[in-house]
């Protein structure tokens, strides 16, 4: 049985990964709104996911306003799918 990805296993990061998995990309405001996390929480967890290569970050100006857009990288999508499979396997094993 493969080990759980501890980076994704943290509840807030798991929610951030799930919120990005269901879209192509979303900006900071949208992610914070959908998860209900504070700005600081989103920033710090996204920085860790970016450092792991799971999330790509794009910073730009749109209509003269700064916008930070997040999306899952291919590695991030694979890691999330593996995490789901591992959890599903664990739950099945305990049935």
């Amino acid at each position: 049985m493969s080990e759980l990805d501890r980076l994704i296993h943290e509840p807030a990061r798991l929610m951030l990964m799930a919120s990005l998995y269901i879209v192509d990309e979303a900006d900071f405001v949208n992610v914070a709104g959908r998860t209900g996390f504070s700005a600081g929480n989103v920033s710090s967890h996204m920085a860790k996911l970016e450092a792991a290569g799971y999330v790509s970050v794009r910073k730009e100006f749109v209509d003269k306003r700064p916008r930070t857009t997040y999306s899952l990288t291919d590695a991030g999508r694979r890691a999330f799918e593996e995490y789901r499979a591992t959890v599903a396997g664990l739950l099945k094993a305990t049935e």
Binding site: I22, D27, V29
Partner: peptide
């Protein structure tokens, strides 16, 4: 968009 943010849904 300034309140709900930007999102691009999947293909």
């Amino acid at each position: 968009e300034s309140r709900a943010g930007y999102v691009r849904w999947t293909e």
